[in-house]
Computed example of a mutant assay.
Amino acid sequence: MKIALMDSGIGLLAAAAAVRTLRPDADLVLSSDPDNMPWGRGTSEDVTQRALAACEAAAAHGPDALIIACNTATVHALPAVRALLEPDIPVIGTVPAIKPAAAGGGPIAIWATPATTGSPYQRGLIRDFAAGVEVTEVPCPGLADAVQWADEDGIDRAVAAAAALTPRDVRAVVLGCTHYELVAERIRAAVQQPEAEPLVLHGSAGAVAAQALRRLGERPEPATEVRGGLTVILSGRHETLPPAALTYAEGRGLQAVSHAG
């Protein structure tokens, strides 16, 4: 089994690590476009074209399924990618985990990129899945970029700024950008109040990994000792995981439990 993942950058590491946990024997193809990050500053047409290019690069390796492990690309390019690849290659998008967060009751906060915060897309998800729940949308300028390049000071500044906009009484935070999942514990530490119940963070990595297996009619087999391959494509070039990826546990884990693709 071969599963491809696409993102603008290393935000796909969280979903890739989740797939690797569920199926250590799966071959993974990671296709990203760091040369043109961040995609969110472009038009919808720009995002769609870049997403299509990254997906085509991944599809050339013959995956059984493709995960768009990027919220921005899912918003703008999911229909175009599905039109290109399905039904031959099932395509799984990434949606912020607003529904499960709201199911636990409020108040909740949604951390997302400035382009996504307040967008009709996100407002629609809030309307559909969080009616009656107190929701605060928190823009996080610069956080995805800082995570992408493992800029420790930049991450600290962006997390602190977003935490200052987050109400002290929130019970859960939705991580509305896949890059944020790589620094989830730093976000937790910044938002958790000493007197409050443990904060719940809601990412999308586990859900999209499980959905990819369901689309393929496969079951999780986490105990298998077979090590799947790892192929890395950066802006169309065959590479290894970039140094910044190896600063995160997900990146180091993927390198450690994969054989060369």
Results as ranks from 00 to 15, higher is better:
158 A>W: 09
70 C>W: 07
206 G>M: 10
124 G>R: 11
108 I>L: 15
93 G>K: 10
42 G>H: 10
24 P>Y: 08
111 W>K: 02
105 G>R: 07
205 A>L: 08
18 A>K: 03
40 G>A: 13
62 G>V: 08
47 V>R: 14
181 E>P: 00
39 W>A: 11
158 A>K: 05
213 L>V: 11
146 A>F: 13
175 L>Q: 05
189 A>R: 10
67 I>C: 06
106 G>L: 07
141 P>R: 12
25 D>L: 03
41 R>M: 11
17 A>Q: 13
228 G>L: 09
11 G>H: 07
14 A>V: 09
162 A>K: 02
40 G>V: 13
42 G>W: 00
120 P>L: 12
241 L>T: 13
147 V>N: 05
145 D>N: 13
123 R>L: 15
25 D>F: 04
219 R>K: 13
20 R>E: 08
172 A>L: 01
217 G>T: 01
133 V>C: 05
136 T>D: 04
50 R>P: 01
242 P>K: 06
207 A>Q: 06
196 A>Y: 00
156 D>Q: 08
73 A>V: 05
200 V>E: 09
145 D>L: 15
103 A>I: 02
4 A>N: 06
151 D>H: 13
110 I>F: 04
255 Q>E: 12
148 Q>D: 14
74 T>Y: 01
40 G>W: 01
191 V>E: 04
226 V>C: 01
218 E>S: 03
8 S>E: 13
128 D>A: 15
127 R>S: 14
31 S>Y: 09
236 G>N: 02
49 Q>C: 03
256 A>G: 07
30 L>S: 07
194 P>Q: 07
61 H>E: 15
214 R>D: 15
63 P>F: 03
116 T>N: 09
116 T>M: 12
67 I>N: 04
88 D>L: 12
208 V>F: 08
223 A>I: 09
70 C>A: 06
204 S>K: 01
78 L>K: 01
181 E>D: 02
240 T>E: 14
140 C>S: 10
75 V>M: 03
93 G>S: 10
217 G>M: 13
225 E>C: 08
122 Q>K: 01
179 H>P: 00
141 P>S: 13
35 D>T: 06
80 A>H: 06
114 P>L: 12
36 N>Y: 14
170 V>G: 02
198 P>N: 05
10 I>V: 15
250 E>N: 04
145 D>S: 15
20 R>L: 09
145 D>M: 14
116 T>R: 06
240 T>R: 08
97 A>Y: 02
189 A>T: 14
204 S>V: 06
26 A>Y: 08
90 P>W: 15
237 R>T: 11
124 G>K: 11
22 L>R: 08
230 L>Q: 11
202 H>A: 13
27 D>A: 14
186 R>I: 05
167 P>G: 09
163 A>S: 11
168 R>M: 01
215 R>L: 15
42 G>Y: 01
7 D>Q: 10
201 L>P: 00
142 G>F: 14
167 P>D: 13
199 L>R: 02
5 L>N: 04
106 G>T: 11
8 S>T: 12
55 C>F: 03
136 T>C: 05
93 G>Q: 12
91 V>P: 03
80 A>P: 00
236 G>R: 06
97 A>Q: 03
114 P>N: 08
232 V>M: 08
92 I>G: 02
101 A>S: 11
128 D>K: 11
136 T>R: 14
185 E>C: 03
134 E>P: 00
188 R>W: 12
83 A>L: 06
143 L>Q: 02
245 A>W: 09
2 K>F: 13
144 A>K: 06
78 L>P: 00
22 L>T: 08
